[in-house]
């Protein structure tokens, strides 16, 4: 058991060491003459405008929240999948109820429009001449 996970540790250490080693080798071989223009932020050749650490679309936050909920459910279903064939009908009924509740949540999100990426935040009354 312990040696199995020790292998994972060895993989992680070796992977990180490879990155470090290659970066080191590259450092020895590459030319280095930085200039102010070279180190400036790339914006397709324009003079960079302000910082890019700005406020962001709230949709990403909503997606993250939905993801957390569903990922926990997936994590819960894995142990169920392992013992399913031993437990039989009981396991099926439980998972069925579980998934139906979950899909009801998804249906609610769908109805509320939280699954739509492009969404107008408030309805603007149509101007004259527009439909």
């Amino acid at each position: 058991m312990l040696t199995e996970f020790a292998t994972v540790l060895v993989f992680i250490v070796l992977g990180a060491a490879t990155v470090a080693l290659m970066l080191g080798v590259s450092r020895l071989l590459q030319p280095r003459n930085p200039t102010a223009v070279k180190l400036s932020t790339y914006e397709c050749g324009e003079v960079p405008f302000g910082s890019s650490w700005v406020q962001f679309n709230i949709r990403f936050y909503v997606i993250a929240l939905i993801f957390i909920i569903f990922d926990v459910e997936v994590a819960l279903l894995y142990p169920w999948a392992v013992v399913f064939q031993r437990l039989g009908l009981l396991a099926f009924v439980e998972a069925f109820i579980f998934i139906v509740i979950l899909l009801a949540g998804l249906a609610y999100l769908w109805k509320e429009g939280d699954l739509d990426w492009v969404r107008t935040m408030q309805e603007t009354p149509p101007r004259k001449g527009e439909r």
């Binding site: 970066l23 080798v25 590259s26 450092r27 071989l29 590459q30 102010a36 180190l39 932020t41 790339y42």
Partner: peptide, 12 residues
């Protein structure tokens, strides 16, 4: 080529 390229970290 990638190994010999200059490694640039933007100032900002």
């Amino acid at each position: 080529k990638l190994l010999l390229k200059e490694d640039i970290i933007p100032a900002k």
